[in-house]
Design a protein around this nucleic acid. Structure first.
Lengths: 124, 124
DNA sequence: AATCATATGTCATATTATATTACATATTAG
DNA sequence: CTAATATGTAATATAATATGACATATGATT
């Protein structure tokens, strides 16, 4: 559903939270961004702010890497995906207030705890 | 489900995230803590770290405040809720719905429709 | 083996975020 | 009116994050 997409794309999580949820270091998370795999927003203070979708993506990247795939391969996989997604197109817009409410709901339903050695089920 | 309970009690969210998700100021959030309504954990750097359960609670507090209930009343209600949960045995707590009803009952005793500013579309 | 690329660690410096405390103030209750 | 309540605001200190540079382990290539 549309609402869910939106609430999962709200960027409210700082890198420290992402570190805990993914078990990655800040260095790693920033490096994946540097390589074009993730694109967190920035707040007014220039801090990276991540969404649940970003966390999904990062966990997926983590999986790929632990499977022996290197960054550039992962990147090409995502570029391919974007092409497909782009051909579908989507647009939705909700008020900030609605969005906040929706994200609350979503956060309260987060599923899939990351666990260092358990191949991420990526169910976040 | 136990795993979900665990997830919901993970303290990984700094106060800035809570501000965004609840639309409250840091001052308000800390004040509710000062009044004994919330008890976030602290990380090694002494920063408050909130869980999804904490956010639930804060949103609930926000609702009741906007309905005209004052802090001490809310506190006494929570204490009452705990008593009842305790007398039922720790393994059989009040359901959320029952808890809501309890608070609603209390609201009726708070007296006059303290209409206040009902901008509180408690949709959160 | 030597060299190179990749992925991550670590350190230094600068800026933002948060904690704490104190005082101010608007609104409500008595 | 006066006190209590809830929140704002400011000052100061410390933690978290950003950025850039250099180090290094690992695996790939020559």
């Amino acid at each position: 559903m549309k609402e869910k997409d939106l609430r999962r794309s709200l960027s409210v999580l700082p890198i420290g939270t992402v570190m805990k949820l993914t078990n990655l270091t800040a260095r790693q998370i920033r490096y994946y961004e540097e390589q074009g795999l993730v694109s967190p927003e920035r707040n007014e203070g220039n801090r990276r702010m991540y969404s649940l979708n970003d966390i999904d993506l990062i966990l997926e990247i983590k999986d790929y890497i632990s499977d022996g795939m290197n960054i550039s391969k992962i990147k090409s996989v995502y570029e391919q995906r974007e092409k497909e997604a782009f051909s579908r197109g989507s647009n939705n817009k909700l008020s900030d207030q609605e969005a906040r409410r929706l994200l609350s709901d979503e956060l309260l339903n987060v599923g899939g705890l990351n666990s260092k050695d358990v191949k991420s089920n990526n169910s976040f």
